[in-house]
Write a protein that binds this DNA or RNA. Structure first.
Lengths: 151, 151
DNA sequence: GTAAGCTGGTTGTATATACAACATTGGAGT
DNA sequence: ACTCCAATGTTGTATATACAACCAGCTTAC
């Protein structure tokens, strides 16, 4: 398959499916953040959780799930990984509900280191998308989160 | 944590990170397609590959990887799953390069069934995002795929 | 003509994601 | 006070994703 054919096919699939475009966009952008944070062993998603926790002071897994609109099982496992890295502590009855999750001193140090790296990724993304693209993302996010809150 | 606090936190994280917004957007939109296709056991991503293959007639794994801009290991495993479902056939030297992947009769039937379901998801997405949102996605996709082709 | 390198594919490992099934725990209602 | 239900969390299973290491075959350079 030559490049022309490939390009044509890509256009066909892309023209058809919004889902495809969103997934590709996600792969590209998330990759920028993940690569940037890779030197300190942090993933973009975990960085978001750390950020939320540091603003909140403390939160339960359910809080994280609600605030960041993530599936509770995803939160459960991610929290577990972060706990193993000693970035956070989880207090409360091992099994029972109502945990209290807080960022550890180590976690705060990590965040400090993450900030510079994250900023670079954010800038790279902004350059890639352009001002217009960034605004589009902001708007799309508003639309989606508005629809989510209705449920 | 009450709803006001949660909402405020969400805004903070979202305001900070474009990556977060894109991931959320991806989760919401991909979920629409996955749920729509769920009755026939097809995932959005696999549907895209099937579509590409049916337009192409045949393609190698490397072609899929290039056209849809997916990691080759992702393609390898997804192709494997689709093959197990008899939606596609893979011909060529078991190990060696240059496979020839084609859609089977079963695969074509599946696509026919998928089309109606996919269309519903597409419409649902369009309603969710609005005309403006859809245009934003189109534009973002162009920007991203243009940057990709430069590499 | 041979060695080095490129291309194509697979596999190991890790994370994010979704859905379903399950356990636990508190509280609400009677 | 007791029962039932809603909210919380965990775990099983499956897919998508990324990166790295690896293998096989073909091409290119010398």
């Amino acid at each position: 398959m030559n490049e022309q054919e490939a390009s044509k096919l890509a256009k066909v699939v892309a023209a058809e499916c919004l889902g495809y475009r969103v997934r590709l966009l996600n792969r590209v952008i998330t990759n920028i953040y993940d690569r940037a944070l890779q030197p300190i062993g942090l993933k973009a998603n975990q960085a978001n959780i750390l950020t939320m926790l540091s603003y909140a002071g403390q939160a339960s897994a359910a809080d994280i799930s609600r605030v960041l609109v993530m599936e509770k099982s995803t939160v459960s496992r991610t929290v577990d990984r972060m706990k193993k890295n000693s970035w956070i502590t989880v207090e409360g009855h091992g099994d029972g509900p109502s945990q209290t999750i807080t960022v550890t001193a180590q976690g705060r140090e990590l965040m400090a280191a993450a900030h510079a790296l994250w900023k670079k990724a954010q800038q790279q993304t902004t350059e890639l998308l352009g001002e217009e693209g960034v605004n589009a993302i902001l708007k799309l996010h508003e639309t989606v989160s508005a629809s989510k809150s209705k449920r």
